[in-house]
Nucleic acid binder design. Structure first.
Lengths: 215, 215
DNA sequence: TTCTTTCGTTATAAGTTGTAACGCAATGGA
DNA sequence: TCCATTGCGTTACAACTTATAACGAAAGAA
């Protein structure tokens, strides 16, 4: 095959059909959850027979993996956009919350109940570490130097996950805490555990954001 | 039917079979996840034909609801036991972590990705509020009186969820924060998001427990 | 025009949940 | 002891699902 520089019509068609399949898949996930995702139903919606979809995705799991990849990609882009005007963990927090509320199922595809035996491919973990780097940048901006707590001392000696990032221990700790606390509020809120309780989840989120380790 | 006081042989047999079905269900969930739970497979394991199970559980969802109920009940009992020697949120935290690590799938059945359209029956929400009451007792023990932060002021006027509990605003806030922060660490840990990162999740958990709002 | 690749089809296999109809066995009362 | 009722487990079946195989048609390349 000669190098055309632009995509062939066939490839254009193929990527377009793949995109439409993913769109329908997101719709289905939103109404019935990821576990109820049916390739047959998607095919019918698109006016073609069930097995036809297997030309585009080798298996149901491959489609879901692709959706997970897109979700990570989308979060990484959101973080990057929020960091455009400088490293700022408050901006990241609000971006994260907006992104999560925008499509809860997308959030749960990343941070929800894990499927036993499923392992994300390497390119997805690469996107995850891209997200972590953005977060570390923001947390480094405000953090001071030497470790002040036992856990920060522990982190100083266990920082493989920072992947060479020069963040001081306090920043490492701040990034981890940002992650777990924001996730703690968001995940319970999105799962509906706060509904009917009366208080405003947004205020709890803000309070937690305000209470992050200051150092 | 005459009131026998003790169960009839038939009822004893019935409850025993139901218990064995649930045991097999837990085993399946542990190896393949809740979404892959198969009534047929359970029946085969027990040496009987598929439809026989429908004498014991009207539908797959009813079995899962029963498992969720058992999970909540188990957590409530664990909390109660941890509170036996007086209200102590540190004891609750360690009990929670032990309970979660003991069976991650049981934890995710309660706090994992919600199933769209599923609503827990009233008796389950009653157990949930029993858990919350135990937590509020522990948080009241250490908290002072008047609200000190904007969010605590907000909680003072939105405390339906406390269900009449006389906890001061600082205790309400402490309870919510306990919940979201412990869940934030535990859920990410159990989902495997920390694996390969190098640090010790137990230390992060301890650090978060130590950092709870003090007031 | 001809060759080749790709696509969508139907047929089929092996699962799943759940219902229906039947027979057997155990329970409880006379 | 006998009998009627109740409950249990079975097979048969309907309507799904994922996934593979084999075939025909359409589209792109030479």
């Amino acid at each position: 095959m000669v190098e055309t520089g632009t995509k062939s019509p066939r490839e254009r068609y193929r990527t377009q059909v793949r995109a439409e399949i993913k769109e329908r898949a997101w719709e289905q996930i939103a109404t019935a959850g990821a576990s109820a995702l049916s390739l047959n139903a998607i095919a019918k919606q698109m006016g073609m027979s069930g097995p036809a979809l297997y030309r585009y995705f080798a298996a149901r799991d491959e489609l879901i993996t692709e959706l997970i990849r897109d979700a990570y990609r989308s979060l990484a882009d959101t973080f990057r956009a929020a960091s455009e005007s400088g490293p700022d963990h408050v901006a990241l927090a609000h971006a994260l919350r907006g992104w999560a509320l925008d499509d809860p199922h997308r959030y749960f595809l990343i941070y929800g109940t894990p499927v036993p035996g499923y392992h994300a491919p390497d390119d997805i973990t690469a996107i995850a570490s891209e997200i972590m780097t953005t977060l570390l940048d923001a947390c480094t901006a405000l953090a001071s130097g030497s470790p002040a707590t036992p856990f920060e001392t522990h982190l100083e000696g266990h920082r493989q996950w920072a992947d060479g990032h020069p963040a001081p221990p306090a920043a490492l700790r701040r990034a981890l805490t940002f992650w777990t606390r924001m996730h703690g509020v968001l995940s319970l809120e999105l799962a509906g555990h706060f509904t009917g309780m009366g208080f405003d989840p947004a205020l709890l989120f803000a309070a937690e954001l305000d209470d992050l380790p200051a150092h």
